Amino acid sequence: MDQVTALPALEQPASRADRVYDSLRRAILEGTLPPGRALVERELGEMLGVSKTPVREALKLLRSTGLVEMNAYQGVSVRRLDEHTVSEVYTARSTVEPAAVRLAVERHDVPDWTSARQTLEEAETLRRRGETTSLVIANRRFHRELYAGCGNDLLCGFLDQLQDLTAFVATAGWRVRATFEQEAAEHEAMLRSAEAGDAAEAERLTRAHIDGATRTLLEMFRGAEPQA
């Protein structure tokens, strides 16, 4: 088993389980806990200075995001990545997210796009600093700012469930081929269309953005062994 000497420092969300979840989530996205890595409650608890109970609760939350998976004999490990996983995640996004963005732009009572603009500016700062993990999280927040105003809780809930898994796939892809600048330019175009109230163009650009990322990621993963 690979040895992990340190995990990201615990931050201060609401509960101890939340703090453990936040640390493990970030470790997975950063690759400190790589795909295929076994997640043993006792070992993780010792690393983080907590009992097994909040670790167990955190792992349940991580399972719901798709970042970890159950193995034989009820073992838990970081999800392995392969072409099939990439295709499933991005096909689901391409089918639903562009329509949700269009609905958000069409709604007259949707809030302004100030938060989306601020998030995009934050992402640009992170890109310049080379803070990859924080950047991918900011990018996911930006996407949510675009679709969250669609007025359909089912659509938002579905897309929210994909957020962490999308970040996981994107981060793994960036380690092979960095596409930061291209994605930043596409995000800017998507936001400008939303700000202009052009729902059809915002939908088109969102779909093109997701489909382009799909092609790039599949080229990276196609024919490769599952990441472990």
Rank of each mutant, 00 (worst) to 15 (best):
M1E: 11
V4I: 13
L7W: 10
A9N: 14
E11C: 09
R19S: 15
Y21W: 12
R25E: 06
R26Y: 06
L29N: 12
E30P: 02
G31K: 04
P34L: 09
G36K: 15
E41I: 08
L48G: 00
G49Q: 02
V50D: 01
P54D: 03
R56C: 10
A58L: 07
K60T: 14
R63V: 10
S64E: 15
T65K: 08
V68W: 04
N71D: 14
Y73E: 12
V78D: 06
V86I: 05
V89K: 11
V89I: 13
Y90M: 13
T95G: 09
A99N: 06
A100Q: 04
A100G: 02
V101Q: 00
L103A: 07
R107S: 02
D112R: 01
R117N: 02
L126N: 06
R129M: 09
R129G: 07
T133C: 03
L135F: 07
F142W: 08
E145T: 02
L146R: 00
L155S: 10
D160L: 01
T166P: 05
T166I: 04
A167S: 05
F168Y: 14
V176A: 13
Q182R: 08
E183W: 10
E186D: 14
A189T: 14
R204Y: 10
R207V: 04
A208C: 03
T214W: 04
L217A: 11
F221M: 06
G223N: 09
A224M: 13
A224L: 11
A224S: 14
